[in-house]
């Protein structure tokens, strides 16, 4: 994977504590698979893994993140004209869906990679979108989906935007309405587990995972999640290198990680 020094050409604050940096990167914008991420240098010992939030026809890529600590604080303070040291594109993204309906389910900062999926496949697949977060202040990119002609179903834990509750309610309705189809999801781990359980084994279900990360390229074995090996036995999967997108069948849902 190449290392880039990319110029910040636009900076947005779509929601409180959320920043999107647009970077000038034509080759990345063309090569990106939805779900892939950038490992971005910040002061300190570790880079920060951030999923791409968009790839535009004029050669820009977006990084949309929530400010949670020192690294994202530093990133949030970048301005137009600053340069970012970026390893990208990293990891395996969502595979091109089979024909038929596709549902995108995004929770909080898990929403941005699904917008890249929407950009990529809106013209070729019937897409539905479900977005969720704790509050309205964390539901990002709604207008972006709308600009693609998609109307997201929104749910928030406090009912401050859309339906009161979790993404599982609209997901249950979508599953009842559609016999086949496939589901692509990104969000907090409990949300992904709930999505995988509801979707079941009957249709393809692809999940983009988060885990605290070290090297970002598969060397240090820090960002592991419990998976199912080819022999059916538990094995650790590296989010950075084997993922971040996994088939739900490869993930070990039934047990807690310490038993895997």
């Amino acid at each position: 994977m190449p290392r880039y020094e990319l110029e910040v050409v636009e900076r947005q604050e779509p929601k409180p504590d959320h920043v999107e940096l647009l970077l000038d990167a034509p080759s990345l914008a063309a090569a990106l698979t939805p779900g892939q991420f950038a490992h971005v240098w910040t002061p300190g010992r570790l880079r920060r893994p951030i999923s791409f939030s968009r790839a535009t026809p004029d050669g820009r890529v977006g990084l949309l993140f929530r400010v949670v600590g020192s690294g994202t604080r530093w990133l949030a303070d970048r301005r137009v004209g600053d340069r970012l040291d970026v390893l990208a594109p990293l990891g395996h993204g969502f595979p091109t869906p089979e024909t038929g309906p596709v549902l995108l389910v995004g929770g909080g900062v898990g929403i941005p990679p699904l917008f890249v999926a929407a950009q990529r496949w809106a013209a070729t697949h019937p897409l539905s979108v479900i977005l969720g977060a704790r509050t309205a202040d964390a539901v990002v990119m709604v207008a972006d989906f709308q600009a693609l002609g998609l109307e997201p179903s929104i749910s928030t834990d406090d009912g401050s935007l859309g339906e009161l509750g979790r993404v599982t309610s609209p997901l249950t309705r979508w599953l009842a309405r559609n016999d086949g189809g496939q589901v692509l999801a990104c969000g907090p781990t409990p949300m992904l587990a709930a999505v995988a359980e509801l979707v079941g084994d009957g249709r393809p279900c692809w999940l983009a995972y988060e885990q605290r990360m070290g090297c970002g390229v598969g060397a240090c074995l820090a960002c592991v999640v419990p998976g199912v090996g080819t022999d059916g036995q538990p094995e650790w999967l590296r989010v950075c290198h084997d993922g971040p997108v996994f088939s739900s069948r490869r993930l070990w849902w039934a047990r807690r990680p310490e038993e895997a």
Binding site: G71, Q211, R212, M213, G214, C220, L221, A222, V224, V225
Partner: peptide, 21 residues
């Protein structure tokens, strides 16, 4: 190896608990 999380950034340092996977 050990249960994740396996890394944590500290002032001028890094804590790891990979567990020799």
């Amino acid at each position: 190896g050990n249960v994740p999380p396996r890394v944590w950034e500290t002032p001028s340092g890094l804590l790891n608990s990979i567990g020799l996977q």
